[in-house]
């Protein structure tokens, strides 16, 4: 019963934050709604016992990513409110909402009308995994440990241990590739925002910089 209440509160925060992002006139408010949504997702991770991911969710998403958004908003001075009443492209809103409803119907249809699921009548859970991924891709690292197999007073290993074993075991090549990806992204960002004539730069008087 407690988990239902926690789920309900977290889901409300997640969806409320998402609605706030979509309908905020001010980009700063949209970014703050995004933080609320990310915190709700972190709570959902905690109640599914993905403690490390909840931690990373708060540090990376609610911390770094949203701060980056806010930094760009403040740097560019685009924190003006946007008039949502005018619709520059006629029919964009209604078409967008219609497409969104189509996507929702598609995903929910796929969820409830698709093949073998996870219920008792749908076979074992291994069949579910194969139905989902098309192949046997199990890491062999469980999320939950059988309490009866543990010795007296022994605590089950934390989720981060299994995550690390999987990440640095069979996924180590992909992990190294992400290092390359992050390096390329950083270099790309530097190249994109570089001021070409920065050598003979003229420094503006404070407050006179053109936007």
């Amino acid at each position: 019963m407690v988990s239902v209440v926690v789920f309900a509160i977290a889901a409300t925060v997640v969806l409320g934050g998402a609605v706030g992002v979509i309908f905020s006139k001010n980009p700063v408010r949209a970014a703050l709604s995004l933080i609320a949504s990310f915190f709700g997702v972190a709570v959902l991770f905690v109640i599914q016992e993905a403690h490390f991911l909840a931690f990373v969710q708060v540090v990376v998403y609610a911390g770094a990513v949203v701060v980056l958004f806010l930094f760009v908003i403040m740097l560019l001075g685009v924190d003006k409110t946007e008039d949502l009443e005018v619709e520059p492209l006629a029919g964009q809103r209604s078409a967008g909402v219609l497409l969104g409803l189509c996507v929702l119907g598609l995903v929910l249809g796929g969820l409830f009308l698709s093949g073998p699921g996870f219920g008792e009548d749908a076979g074992t859970k291994t069949e579910g995994a194969v139905a989902l991924t098309g192949q046997q891709t199990q890491s062999g690292r469980p999320v939950r440990f059988d309490e009866s197999l543990l010795e007296e007073g022994e605590r089950p290993p934390a989720d981060v241990e299994g995550l690390a074993a999987d990440l640095f075991g069979r996924n180590v090549l992909a992990f190294e590739a992400t290092a390359l990806l992050l390096t390329i992204a950083t270099v790309g960002a530097v190249v994109l925002v570089r001021n070409k004539g920065a050598e003979g730069i003229e420094i503006d008087e404070p407050g006179t910089a053109t936007r």
Partner: peptide, 9 residues
């Protein structure tokens, strides 16, 4: 969680 496999995380 439902497949009890850490690969999803």
């Amino acid at each position: 969680g439902v497949l009890n496999d850490i690969a999803g995380q």
